[in-house]
């Protein structure tokens, strides 16, 4: 049954995700600025942004329907759920059985469908363009992500995220070659899914290249705030998922609070390194033309399938 400490841990995990996600986005922005020799915005810039946006009136286009107004809340809800079931700090999460890794992919898919539909709702040229491109990225990235999860699920004999993380954290120091393939594929998918260079650029409003920004052009006020927050939650979720899957050390197991005390600084440290590396990747890469993106994601898909094959052929049932 659900224990009290588990429940507290769960609420704490959600609260931490909500608080930490904008900071992570701010940190990546800061690192990017440093890499590019610019003066960095403050770490808490995303918070000021959210605060400002929540205060502003919502300016809706004439053609916006009820779907347009509800989509930000749905997307936000999906991302909160995703953060709730990813074991960032502890594997004792009462909500974790609600959705395993396959359902987690489904959560991201649901959010993507809603945001794409919302983008098509007003009926502007950029909106539909963004929606179409987002679905394009989605249908290429989703199978790759699923294949990464398949490889890991075969190692752990389970699709439950917490079980996978526990298994990987406890394995002998033995490098699975398949994990390397899966890790690279996962990184590539994460870049695409979070609208990062080289697939998309979160800092651009250049018409022909944008994907995510094109979709949310018509949003303003609290809706935009929620979408921005959801976007940083998504980055946080992907980062935590990647860290938990490939660098699972320091995550608390069982129902002890002492484990959490160690887990929090470990998580912050890992996120800081991860964010720094992300900014590095974004700086040394150029944005791809939109029709190079399928090649990029196709490579990710092939790597993930290769990882699966390596797992099946070389590692047997080890």
């Amino acid at each position: 049954m659900i224990s009290i400490s588990g429940l507290i841990g769960q609420i704490f995990a959600i609260a931490l995700a909500l608080l930490l996600a904008p900071v992570l986005s701010g940190w990546v922005g800061q690192c990017r600025a440093w890499f590019q020799n610019r003066t960095a915005p403050p770490l808490l810039q995303p918070y000021y942004m959210l605060h400002k946006l929540f205060h502003k009136d919502v300016v809706l286009a004439h053609g916006a329907s009820s779907l347009f107004r509800s989509a930000p809340f749905v997307v936000f809800g999906c991302m909160v759920l995703a953060c709730a079931i990813i074991p960032a700090l502890s594997t004792d999460l009462p909500l974790a059985p609600a959705a395993d890794a396959l359902a987690l992919v489904g959560v991201f898919g649901l959010a993507r469908v809603f945001i794409s539909l919302a983008a098509m709702d007003v009926g502007t040229s950029f909106g539909t363009l963004g929606g179409r491109r987002e679905m394009l990225v989605g249908f290429l990235a989703e199978p790759a992500l699923l294949m990464v999860i398949f490889t890991l699920a075969m190692i752990a004999q389970s699709t439950s995220v917490t079980t996978i993380v526990e298994t990987l954290a406890h394995r002998e120091f033995l490098v699975f070659p398949s994990l390397a393939f899966a890790g690279i594929a996962f990184t590539m998918v994460s870049l695409a899914e979070n609208a990062r260079v080289p697939v998309d650029n979160p800092a651009t409003h250049l018409e022909l290249t944008m994907i995510h920004e094109a979709m949310i052009l018509e949003y303003s006020g609290r809706h935009l705030a929620l979408i921005e927050w959801a976007a940083s939650l998504k980055l946080y979720a992907y980062s935590c998922l990647g860290l938990a899957l490939f660098f699972p050390w320091g995550i608390a197991e069982g129902e002890r609070f002492s484990g959490l005390l160690l887990a929090i600084p470990m998580l912050v440290l890992k996120l800081a390194i991860g964010g720094f590396l992300l900014a590095g990747i974004e700086t040394i890469n150029a944005k791809l033309r939109i029709f190079r993106a399928p090649e990029f994601l196709g490579t990710a898909f092939m790597l993930a399938v290769l990882g699966l094959l390596v797992r099946l052929m070389l590692e047997g049932s080890a």
Binding site: D57, V58, V59, L60, A61, H62, V122, T124, H205, G221
Partner: peptide, 11 residues
């Protein structure tokens, strides 16, 4: 919960 309606922005 304020809302205003106007023409679409579309850059």
């Amino acid at each position: 919960g304020r809302v205003r309606r106007t023409a679409a922005w579309d850059c």
